[in-house]
């Protein structure tokens, strides 16, 4: 029931958006991608292809997390026609953390904060002009405290 209602709300929103501004269409949440337990699976489910590494995708994220429960990440890109930006944490139980559907009206910069249970590769994936581009970085989650 819950899901139904949510889907319905979403459809209504989508319909309303389509009516008012026919050019911008947002898809529904890819629930299966969020349930996937590997990065590859999540990316395939969400985006349908394998991204290529690109120096035009930029990710600001700490090398060592101050708090694994709150890891700030900012993704930006120099690419044109950005359709979506996604953040994936390889070693999380469900790696897909967040995905943002962009429009021509948004600047291609997004900040969000994610949870990391342990040290992991974090990936930022940008869909632009129908193609997938990515960058990645190791983020360390440590017990800390014995140094200084």
């Amino acid at each position: 029931m819950k899901i139904d209602r949510r889907s319905m709300l979403r459809s209504l929103l989508a319909v309303a958006a389509t009516l008012a501004f026919p050019k911008i269409l947002f898809a529904a949440r890819a629930d299966k991608a969020f349930e996937a337990t590997t990065s590859d699976e999540a990316i395939a489910e969400l985006l349908g292809a394998v991204p290529t590494a690109s120096d035009k995708v930029h990710m600001k994220i700490p090398d060592i997390a101050e708090n694994g429960a709150v890891v700030p990440v900012t993704v930006s890109t120099d690419l044109e026609d950005v359709e979506s930006i996604s953040v994936v944490v390889d070693n999380n139980p469900t790696p897909l953390a967040a995905s943002f559907d962009m429009s021509p009206k948004t600047v291609a910069v997004i900040s969000v904060r994610i949870k990391m249970g342990q040290s992991s590769i974090v990936r930022a994936i940008v869909k632009a002009g129908g193609n997938l581009y990515s960058t990645s970085k190791e983020v360390k989650v440590t017990i800390g405290g014995c140094g200084g």
Binding site: L13, A17, A20, F21, I24, F26, R29, A30, F34, A69, V70, V71, P72, V89, N92, T94, L96, A97, A98, S99, F100, D101, M102, S103, K105, T106, S111, V112, R113, I114, K115, M116
Partner: peptide, 17 residues
């Protein structure tokens, strides 16, 4: 006008920003 939609999973931090 909708300009941005975010889809989140369980790994977005408490009190999202």
């Amino acid at each position: 006008e909708q300009v941005l939609v975010a889809y989140w999973g369980t790994a977005v931090s408490k009190n999202p920003y």
